[in-house]
Nucleic acid binder design. Structure first.
Lengths: 205, 205
DNA sequence: GCGCTATACGAACGTTCGTGCTATTTACGC
DNA sequence: GCGTAAATAGCACGAACGTTCGTATAGCGC
């Protein structure tokens, strides 16, 4: 009996290795700054050899995003959604995102970087990013709905607004950490999150 | 008596015109995406003629940022700081920022776009952006301190945290508007802002 | 009106980008 | 073990980038 990773064709393995490296690199330099030449050098492979795996740069960018999504689903979304409590899921989404973006991705959140790069660049990549953003807000909003149904959150809570505010806190954290290197970025994000939770919870007099 | 804009050397006028156009273009394509060739074409001027005004692309980028700062100071910061009330200043900063970024800048806030582009690109431009970010948070925090002194905001309010949260709302608005074209972006930002104000204000039982 | 200087131009530079083509190597079923 | 197909390398391309250089032109003090 052999490990399935060994029976898998060689090309698939190198393609996956390329995407793993490309994902980390893209978090630093962006999807547009991600260049086939430097990626090939980093992988110690020829430019044309790497190129053949994707056929176009746009296809590479899409594949990188999908790789990032797979990571994000496995490390942030799925563990959170497994939790029975809605409040615990919200908490896990927050903690998971902070940890994932600051500890597992070399240059922070790829999706935020890519969103800024492509918000004025129509095409398949942009469409993909928009779709991902909607899905992400739905995941957060869905957890809020569960928390509301369980009685932990206010009955009149607007889950779309909650998800929007939740996401904005993450944007603030990302910028505080990446641009100004604020050592208190995590603390500030945590305080903002607690304020959001307090407002969403049923009032405790 | 002649208008000062006519006595000013010709070169200064074209330089200013270039920067005006470059600022709008940079809000769309970013400071890195801003290219001397396309900018020259847009201005109906030669590439080398335009280049001579700045000497390097980095100098152009810095000049564009300074142009953006001048706009931002004139249209957002100064009017707000003239208000006698701290709360009114906070409100004016918020409204002013929303209006400025969505109505006066073709591609949204230049500083947010540039921050993402340069957060991993050390150099003079990045340093400039970090400094601007600090100054901006200090302006917001200063207005909060005034509101606290006037008794409108809680005595134990952390103005740095307030400024951080304030800024995060703007980041959320910018992304909602630019990436997903959310028609409710302004409404959501307003709701988030009201929640921030409510939390900062002295409790009304 | 002359002459100096600021301003703009056109061409070319060396790089780097993404992307084709064609060979050569490598892996794997039979 | 051999043959075929997949995988990679090598090389070249056209375009675009920032930048430099020599030259022409326009504006303005005198």
């Amino acid at each position: 009996m052999v490990s399935p990773t060994l029976t898998r064709p060689r090309g698939d393995r190198t393609r996956q290795a390329i995407l793993e490296e490309a994902l980390q690199l893209a978090t630093v330099v962006g999807l547009h700054g991600l260049t086939i030449g430097t990626l090939a050098t980093r992988m110690e492979i020829s430019k044309s050899g790497l190129f053949a795996h994707f056929g176009s740069k746009e296809a590479l960018q899409q594949a990188v995003i999908e790789t990032g999504v797979a990571h994000f689903m496995a490390r942030v979304i799925r563990p959170a959604l497994l939790l029975p409590s809605g409040v615990a899921a919200v908490r896990a989404l927050f903690d998971g995102w902070i940890h994932w973006s600051s500890e597992e991705m070399a240059g922070g959140c790829l999706f935020i970087t890519a969103a800024v790069e492509f918000d004025d660049r129509p095409g398949a990549v942009r469409d993909q990013l928009v779709e991902l953003h909607h899905q992400w807000l739905e995941v957060v909003g869905g957890a809020a709905v569960r928390a509301r149904a369980s009685g932990a959150f206010r009955a009149d809570l607007d889950e779309a607004q909650f998800a929007h505010d939740f996401h904005a806190i993450l944007l603030g954290f990302n910028q505080a950490r990446r641009l100004v290197n604020d050592p208190d970025a995590k603390t500030k994000a945590e305080r903002a999150f607690q304020r959001l939770l307090r407002d969403a919870s049923v009032s405790s007099p």
